[in-house]
């Protein structure tokens, strides 16, 4: 494959689609080599690339969007409008997250049961030290304080200025 010609320094076409392909890892090796060379020479091209990267990162940084509460719950409980007659209505499920949680709970209950049995065997043989309940809210505060000494002060300390977020 022949190497594409390298445009003269300063010649920047912001509509050059290779910029997006470069960021997405979708350009050819030859295109990448050529663009690397042009980027090293051209501040304008670096700026153009930065602009595309900013737009790309902006969309990629959008959080996942949750459906309104009850949307999937209703679908799963009532079935799809045009499909409900064709398939048995599934048992009502609270919602997808709760369902996942419930499955996890079942899974870990089994694991926990085995672990509990193993622990029981150990307890019979060996005296155990006292039980502890880690003060997790205090620990998160202490972590924030320590982090703030070497990382950005504001972003480290902000958790100390809001409720911790632990569920009761």
């Amino acid at each position: 494959m022949s190497r594409p010609p390298i445009p003269p320094t300063g010649s920047v076409d912001p509509d050059d689609t290779v910029l997006s392909a470069y960021l997405d890892g979708e350009c050819t090796d030859a295109e990448r080599v050529a663009l690397d060379a042009r980027l090293a020479d051209s501040a304008d091209l670096r700026a153009a690339l930065a602009e595309v990267a900013a737009a790309r990162d902006a969309v990629r940084g959008l959080p996942l969007r949750d459906a309104p509460p009850g949307f999937f719950e209703r679908l799963l409980a009532e079935g799809l409008p045009e499909a409900s007659a064709a398939v048995p209505t599934p048992a009502p499920v609270p919602d997808d997250l709760t369902a996942r949680r419930a499955r996890r709970t079942r899974r870990w209950t089994a694991v926990g049961g085995a672990a509990a049995a193993a622990m029981l065997a150990v307890v019979v043989l060996v005296p155990r030290p006292a039980s502890v309940t880690p003060p997790v809210a205090t620990f998160t505060d202490a972590h924030a304080v320590r982090s703030s000494l070497q990382d950005d002060v504001v972003s480290s300390l902000v958790p100390l200025g809001v409720r911790a977020g632990f569920r009761p």
Partner: peptide, 12 residues
């Protein structure tokens, strides 16, 4: 490739 790039440019 073309539409994606133009979309990002427009977005910007």
């Amino acid at each position: 490739r073309s539409r994606l790039h133009r979309g990002r440019r427009l977005l910007r």
